[in-house]
Design a protein around this nucleic acid. Structure first.
Lengths: 255, 255
DNA sequence: CGACGAATTGAAACATCTCAAAACTCGTGG
DNA sequence: CCACGAGTTTTGAGATGTTTCAATTCGTCG
């Protein structure tokens, strides 16, 4: 794997650098300069609240393949992705892996109803994250219900996505899974203000398989099928051109 | 299907009757008498708060097979199950169905990050629910952050369950799926204070299949396999005796 | 340019599905 | 109390989509 940084990601990470430079002094809230704040759970916060957030946040940078935390570890922190792409997954004792989700700028991770993380997290591309001590963040949530409300909204959204994924895993064919996956990646890129059509697919075939409940080989064969049917085109740097979105949507819905 | 009411459920529903009789007058909060409150999102509420809840809640009773709402409908209400068993599911246009979850006393449903329900809900057994107008409940959440916090906790819990189900759907074999399912039903029954071992399985083979991403036939065959291996015994009234929990756990984890 | 991991392609194996029929359950009515 | 009937569950046999195992090609990076 070890995907290199896409042009977009470099831009994102550069954009965040002011926020990462937290001189101890009384400078303006670095969170105020956060270019992806509107996507995160910090979206509803005002000037003063952001200052409080700034004081407890720490900025993390990860390289492709770097682990963030492992399933079962003590869930001491919550994270918000500000740039790049992450994967979160669960393992069975014999090594079978299910990727629970891919995370991009704006997504958070580390919410655990237990004391321990319920999944492992690892960087796919060069990524940047904000790291919040759980206890301190909880104290903040107590003070700023708007933030808690936002978090509930994001959790609801994630829940809906998880349910959609259950439908995919339990009832869709390989072709339907791949079509759904590509469209979903496109939709999410769009939400982040990126280009939805030649969609960026930064993860490996193996990761895609472990996300869709397929093997690497089946993923590859299905891409080939879609390519031969002129529904997609594989471009350099892990980009996929969706040549016939309508047809892909029909396939994704099972028609 | 049309499962008849189990002795337990009758008890539950009877236990709730005081709460269902909402004379318009100034009587004591019917929610104060709720026998499953500790399981619901009303758990953290005090005397006064419960009174407010009582004023906006309505009690619903459903018979086996009764629909509660359909995917895509305007999400005007939230519900909390107080007795019985429900199923929530999503459909593909051609009729393929994925059951997203089975709900029992204490579980809530209807949380939508959109204006519309993301799934359909239907009663499996004779069931009772509390029905809350979304707008009014949201106003209450604003006033009682404790309730919102509890809801976030329950949503996190659901999210973790959904992720576990993704692992099951994407990576487990039929035998592992069935073993996981039975153990999970048992654990949940236990949490509600019911018997975990001869576990109650009120749903049809078809429902189980649509929950686990299998066909009815495969579910049936797998039950037979487990029965022949002396790991379970099928008892009357949809109960399953887990004869060797350890072995079932090993199977469920993929060992 | 050379090399190593990732992706693709091929052929055979297999778990689950599909189609079909028999057996069972349980409520109902004679 | 027993027999009937409709729906559900179980069992069987054959079909199939996906996996497994193996080999080749591609792409990227040193």
């Amino acid at each position: 794997m070890q995907q290199s940084l896409s042009p977009f990601d470099i831009g994102r990470i550069r954009g965040l650098e002011p926020a990462r430079e937290r001189a101890g002094g009384e400078q303006v809230s670095p969170c105020g300069a956060c270019s992806v704040r509107h996507l995160t759970f910090c979206a509803p916060l005002g000037e003063e609240e952001l200052n409080h957030v700034s004081r407890i946040v720490q900025n993390i940078e990860l390289h492709p393949g770097d682990p963030l935390f492992d399933e079962g570890e003590d869930a001491t922190h919550l994270y918000s992705v500000t740039a790049g792409a992450m994967k979160v997954y669960k393992l069975l004792p014999d090594g079978r892996r299910q990727i629970i989700g891919f995370l991009f700028a704006g997504d958070f991770l580390g919410l655990a109803d237990d004391e321990a993380y319920a999944y492992s997290a690892e960087a796919i591309t060069h990524s940047a994250l904000c790291r919040f001590p759980r206890r301190k963040l909880e104290a903040l949530l107590e003070r700023y219900p708007r933030m808690e409300r936002r978090l509930l909204g994001m959790a609801s959204h994630e829940l809906a996505a998880a349910q959609e994924q259950m439908l995919l895993l339990g009832r869709k064919t390989a072709k339907e899974k791949i079509a759904s996956f590509l469209l979903s990646l496109g939709r999410r890129a769009e939400q982040r203000g990126q280009t939805a059509n030649p969609v960026s697919v930064p993860m490996s075939r193996n990761d895609i398989g472990d996300f869709l409940g397929l093997t690497t080989e089946t993923v590859s064969r299905t891409f080939t099928q879609l390519r031969q049917a002129k529904l997609i085109a594989l471009m350099p740097a892990g980009r996929v051109d969706l040549l016939d979105v309508e047809a892909l949507q029909d396939i994704a819905e099972g028609n």
